[in-house]
Design a protein around this nucleic acid. Structure first.
Length: 469
RNA sequence: GUGGUCGUAGCUUAGUGGCUUAAAGCAUCAGGAUGUGGCCCUGAAGAUCGCCGGUUCAAAUCCGGUCGACCACCCCA
């Protein structure tokens, strides 16, 4: 009997909650087929507000990695004379189906299409990668008439509607380069060298560069025939996916993960054995330049990349320990036919893209420490109204000197301010109380030694600079 | 898109033969004899037990569904 009394509150509260939930679900159901372009903006009918699947926040604690990667990339891009380009997040979907390839996974099953409120308009999509947009801009703005090659870089988020995993999100950041308007293999080497330098400069160890050549258009057509006739004979032993690939893209069979396909692929004719003299020579030149630059590489004859526009040189860089495919940190290659396909003149191009989130994971994995250049070194503690006012100008002076300084003007207790100073791990704490304001002095406390000294207020800056050396 | 594992405070976890007010550590905030950090002590705040539904007098706990994270496949950075 008394138990009943205690439980009464809960179901009652719950019932009202349920009623609300049901009501909102009905609302969603009703708005499931809205007239085009008039989607209702509803409060979250799925309960608490949260981020959408596969999207992520880059939190303050991770920004040091995020910023460092961007900084390092920009440093090498600029050093090499590359210029920045920013292209739109939204493009016509056909840009990608023509360029990236309508049969690729990226376009076929991962692209975010925009619901248009005007049926007449051409379908649009969120960019899954940057290269097509940049090639489009190159043609559209007549950059072919500028001194060639154009050397461009970008840093921007991309969108792919994949099943999320670690190191694989639906919105993720890429930085990358494109050299447009030349088919000279020295650009291949130059671009790879830059990627390598950025990664090494970040402090990453055990990097592996895998490289291959897919050959020119003719080579690819020939190779296609050769592969089809080879695999056709063994078709019955291939996995279901590969049977399909045989007609769509036989090159993909080469990097299938199925054991039985692997075995067959091992003995398959290799692309580099069937390159024309020109492509063979270009590949050789590129490799020789990498030797010259002392960049170690593994020729992986089965490296086939999943974007249709690639030709000739293709490559991927991974931190060696990570054998999973998500470990690829930078990937790219040559695409000599894309510009022409977009209506430009025949002009070669190479580029690569790096995944910032994946690099962040690699930096953490390898326990690479990132120093914050604005790390606070001084804390200013204050007591009393007079001191608080005085604090502003003092903070200002220190900041002008480029000294990282913190204060907690919202706190009044000296103890809690010192506790904060300790958490910030500052080297010095300045204490400005009423007494000090009157005497025109300040206390400088060495946090490591626990010693403090009284310094004349107008000598503070000098004194601190001496101590921080 | 397919398969597997998991889902309790900000974080790491405890609690599942259904039963009072869901527990702890770390982190947060406020204090600890008058203006001094770390260690220590006291206190406060913080949980729709992922969400929805079912079974039941009673569900964090049992059942179904769903969402999400992670892992594998696929594929990419």
């Amino acid at each position: 009997m008394p138990r009943k009394k205690t439980t009464r509150g809960r179901p009652k509260a719950k019932r009202t909650y349920q009623r609300r939930a049901v009501a909102s679900r009905q609302q969603t159901a009703a708005s499931k087929q809205p007239p085009a372009g008039s989607w209702k903006l509803e409060a979250g009918s799925r309960g608490p507000i949260r981020r959408v699947k596969g999207m992520h926040d880059i939190l303050p604690k991770d920004q040091k990695y995020f910023e460092l990667i961007k900084f390092m990339a920009l440093k090498h891009f600029r050093l090499n004379g590359f210029e920045r380009i920013d292209v739109p997040t939204i493009e016509y979907a056909s840009l990608f189906s023509k360029g990236t390839g309508k049969d690729t996974d990226i376009v076929q099953k991962e692209m975010y299409y925009l619901a248009s409120n005007d049926e007449e308009k051409e379908p649009m999509a969120l960019r899954p990668e940057a290269t097509p947009g940049i090639a489009r801009a190159y043609v559209e703005h007549g950059m072919l008439n500028l001194p060639q090659p154009m050397m461009l870089y970008y840093v921007a988020p991309m969108f792919r509607r994949e099943n999320p995993q670690k190191g694989r999100m639906r919105e993720f950041w890429q930085f990358g380069v494109e050299v447009l308007g030349t088919s000279n293999p020295s650009s291949d080497a130059q671009v790879i060298k830059m990627a390598w330098d950025i990664l090494e400069d970040l402090g990453l160890k055990d990097l592996t560069l895998e490289i291959n050549s897919l050959g020119c258009r003719n080579d690819q057509n020939n190779m296609r025939e050769i592969l089809i006739s080879y695999f056709e004979k063994k078709k019955q032993y291939l996995c279901e996916d590969c049977k399909r690939r045989l007609t769509v893209n036989p090159f993909r069979i080469l990097d299938c993960k199925e054991e039985k396909c692997k075995r067959i692929a091992e003995d398959a004719p290799q692309i580099i054995d069937h390159l024309c003299a020109h492509c063979r020579n270009d590949f050789k030149k590129a490799l020789e330049m990498l030797d010259e630059l002392s960049i170690p590489y593994d020729i992986n004859t089965r490296l086939v990349r999943g974007l249709d526009y690639y030709s000739k040189t293709v490559f991927e860089i991974t931190p060696a320990k990570d054998k999973s495919r998500q470990g690829t940190i930078i990937g790219g290659g040559r695409y000599d036919y894309l510009i022409e396909m977009y209506g430009g003149r025949e002009a070669g191009a190479v580029g690569w893209a790096g995944g910032i989130e994946r690099l962040m994971l690699a930096l953490k994995e390898q326990k690479i420490e990132v120093e914050d250049p604005y790390k606070p070194r001084v804390f200013l503690a204050q007591l009393g109204e007079q001191a608080k006012k005085k604090s502003f100008s003092l903070l200002n002076e220190l900041q002008k000197e480029g000294i990282g300084v913190r204060a907690a003007l919202s706190k009044d207790s000296l103890r809690s301010q010192l506790r904060l100073a300790n958490k910030f791990k500052v080297e010095l704490t300045l204490i400005l109380g009423q007494k000090e304001v009157q005497d025109k002095t300040i206390i400088v406390r060495d946090m490591k030694e626990g010693i403090q000294e009284i310094v004349a207020l107008d000598k503070t800056l000098e004194y601190i600079k001496g101590k921080l050396k």
